[in-house]
């Protein structure tokens, strides 16, 4: 009973922030839903702005928040490390490197309209494979995190070198992207990101049971008739795809993948992935939509980068988890 009330609470808050985020600054639109005499020119214009500009931003907050949280949860279970996450392990940096390569050099690996996403995917998958390769030689949980952080700074130094050699306008473009920006997301991309998410959700259904078993170790997985290799590739595929698609459209967003699954474990006191996956996704989107609502509220005075806000709330949470555990 207690769990169900928490669920209702989370869903209610999520719906509230969704509407708040969607209509912030245009609350009269919300009222116009309920009144019949609403056909003024201004209202119509505002509807158009909300539909074309705000709606994609709200949607991408939901997608990005849930995607990063799920990617973080997968990595945490797979590497048996509660402090793992796409940004900690350098997967986000990998995606950034390939994006900066296409931004700075103008050389694109893929010519399609979603070339940025595919570049990011190449980068994140590449880093995932490196981490995977080294993780078999590392026995210590801490060394894996250090490896990820080292890999991240190693890749970031490449990005900085690229920055030096490129034109002013590209640097500006890249810096804004690097701060994380949900407002550059375009309506036309919703279709693409929905397809990616839909595929990932389908695949995640097949992962719930194996992930639960994986908590007890590789042996337990094999004993129950799963192929460890197949599960490994599935985890890498899903987490790098989610990270890549989000990094391509919103920039590298830190801390959500790390903090949200841990908050979920604390709230629900469970390790069952059917619960954790669902609520990491819900809480992740809630977290990001809350942070972006703050960005919206301060927009008139200062344009806050979303990455700063997520770190502002995420870092203390991580420190709190550390203090609780060690």
């Amino acid at each position: 009973m207690k769990r169900q009330s928490i669920v209702l609470l989370i869903v209610a808050i999520l719906i509230f922030f969704f509407l708040f985020h969607l209509f912030y600054g245009n609350f009269e639109l919300f009222k116009s839903f309920f009144s019949s005499h609403n056909y003024s020119k201004i209202i119509e214009e505002k509807w158009l702005i909300t539909k074309e500009i705000r709606f994609p931003r709200t949607i991408i907050s939901v997608f990005a928040g849930s995607g990063l949280a799920v990617a973080g949860l997968l990595l945490q279970t797979f590497f048996n490390n509660e402090l793992a996450g796409p940004s900690v392990l350098g997967i986000t940096s990998g995606a950034s490197l390939f994006i900066s390569l296409s931004v700075f050099t103008g050389f694109t690996f893929f010519q399609e309209s979603n070339g940025l996403f595919l570049s990011a995917l190449t980068g994140s998958a590449f880093v995932c494979l490196i981490i995977l390769f080294f993780s078999t030689y590392l026995k210590n949980k801490i060394s894996l995190l250090l490896l990820g952080i080292m890999l991240g700074s190693f890749i970031n130094s490449f990005i900085q070198i690229l920055e030096i050699k490129s034109s002013e306008i590209n640097i500006k473009l890249y810096t804004f992207w690097g701060l994380g920006s949900l407002q550059h997301f375009d309506v036309s991309n919703i279709f693409m990101i929905s397809i990616v998410f839909f595929c990932c959700i389908i695949l995640l259904f097949f992962l719930i049971k194996p992930l639960n078993l994986l908590l007890l170790g590789e042996k337990e997985l094999i004993l129950n008739g799963y192929s460890f290799l197949r599960i490994k590739w599935l985890v890498i595929l899903i987490s790098s795809t989610l990270t890549a698609v989000i990094t391509a459209y919103c920039g590298p967003i830190a801390f959500i993948g790390l903090a949200v699954p841990n908050i979920c474990r604390l709230i629900f006191r469970t390790s069952s992935h059917s619960t954790l996956l669902l609520f990491s996704a819900l809480l992740g989107s809630l977290f990001l939509i809350f942070c972006d609502s703050l960005v919206l509220m301060f927009e008139n005075w200062i344009l806050l980068p979303i990455n700063a806000i997520t770190s502002l709330f995420g870092a203390p949470i991580v420190i709190w988890i550390l203090l609780k555990k060690w």
Binding site: F205, F206, I208, K209, L216, E220, T270
Partner: peptide, 19 residues
């Protein structure tokens, strides 16, 4: 965060369906 019940029920894995 893994309860005893969750741990024991993993022993039933070979009987349980997809989820």
């Amino acid at each position: 965060f893994m309860t005893v019940f969750e741990y024991i029920s993993l022993g039933r894995s070979r009987f349980t369906p997809l989820l």
